[in-house]
Design a protein around this nucleic acid. Sequence first.
RNA 1: GGCGGCGUAGCUCAGCUGGUUAGAGCGGCGGUCUCAUAAUCCGCAGGUCUCCGGUUCGAGUCCGGACGCCGCUACCA
Length: 524
Amino acid sequence: MRFYITTAIDYPNSRPHIGTAFEKIGADVQARFRRMEGLDVHFLMGNDENTIKVSQRAEELGVEPKPYVDDMARQFQEVWKALEVSNDDFIQTSEQRHYIGCQKFIQAVYDAGDIEKKAYQSLYCDGCEEFKTAKELVDGRCPNHPNRALREVEEENYFFRLSSFADRLLAHYDANPDFIQPESRRNEIVSLVKSGLQDVSISRKGFTWGIPVPFDPDQTIYVWFDALLNYVTAIGYGTDQERFESIWPADIHVIGKDITRFHCALWPAMLMSAGLPLPKRVFGHGFVYRKDESTGEIAKMSKSLGNAVEPMDLIRSFSAEAFRYYFMSQCPFGGDGEFSFERFADAYNSGLANNLGNLYSRTLSMAVRYFDGDLAGASAIDATAWRAGLDLSALVDELRSLMNTFQYNVAIQRIWAEVLDAANRYIQVTEPFKLVKTDVEATRAVLVNLAEAIRVISILIKPFLPSTAETFYSAFSFAEGAAWETVSYSDILKRPDIADLKVTAPLISGKPAPLFPKIETKAG
RNA sequence: GGCGGCGUAGCUCAGCUGGUUAGAGCGGCGGUCUCAUAAUCCGCAGGUCUCCGGUUCGAGUCCGGACGCCGCUACCA
């Protein structure tokens, strides 16, 4: 079964910051989870390049727009790759497939009678040489040129008759309660649509960078109408109809809460007009704010405030896994979260170094030290003692439900509280380090149990920490039972029958290297 | 202004349709073990649940009001 998941496409006029990374990781966790559930996942990301600002930025740098956006796309993908984001495709809206698909789509909407030509009035600043939106103005004036009067300019543009879709949209929200998530976003959209929709202008005159309107080549398709279409053009709309039909509709659009209305009102209306099915769900995630360690102030990240954090800085200083762990465990995906280096270090040290990493270290050290890494005869040993009192089956069900609803932070909390703690407690209670002096076979059983705990944990954390998960799985010879790529939640309760279980982790003088070296928090 | 949300232990937050001594994680404090990355494990933390008033046998949990904070209020990816 297909599962088509997308993220918002990004403006490539600056490098990605950790807020945009938050969205991609959240979508990636979902994509990885769905793959584990056996779905045929198609995961799309991309960049939004057909905007006036992008061409202006290229001009500032003295380069042509296309090489500029291509280079930015390369840079974005480098970051996503470093964060282990597993997208299957990356669309640039300056590509041919998007050009062709957009023209076909706007023509279809035009033919359906939902596009008309009207006068569009807007304020133009001669200083900036660009149009200003009401929101950009300060006291009715351009913030950059407060002494110059804004000119009211009028031009003929094409408008999409969004206003005529209000009833159909409301009916859709009503029939599909899950269409907009989380719930709070849904309520906002419903009230917005109920308050009445206005037609939106979807073209601009006099620009060469962008996609021409097929029935009037003097005009180019304007931002939203163009950008939203990436979800269909990327999978073949207008260029490969068969492929398109095999993937569309999207199962989920993962987007920022600021752009829910475009995805929940404008986009479905566009699809209705073009006669295409609607996406099944739209998830509007929260934002990550920057908390200043010294002042405690919480602010939105931005370059002008000088508080933006680049993903690559954190990846280089720590690891992609640490990055993913922080955001997925500390920030509820549907709500807002905050970032500070102090909190990052706390979460890393307690969750990754002291808990997850340390469990790995102590288990492998004992297996190597006491048994030379060889736990032969493991399959004859009961390996459920480590989780006595834990209903693992029920936990897996609960986790599935949490993953389906993007409650990643709760899922991680549950895995740590139930499974990691159980394993650490098991060591504490059985004391293999003492037991080995009196009963070697009983100690072997304890270590077989711990190996099994390592295996279970590897599967549970697979969507979140793909690389650490694989390290856990390959710490012992589990791959003889099932290849890592195929392992999923359904394998959690199916212990593979491996008689000659042994340590296969890389060791340095008989010990594993720390997976997550502790971060020193206080200097001196 | 309109609509919606929030204000619970030092920090981050749980607390469903009202009901025994208000919970968790982190930090902190005390203890324990020594396999491990001075990690683990055990125990402690007594917070007017923003304030005022009301409904009720009984309210963080419902109603009204006050104060504070936040989101949405359309063409900004």
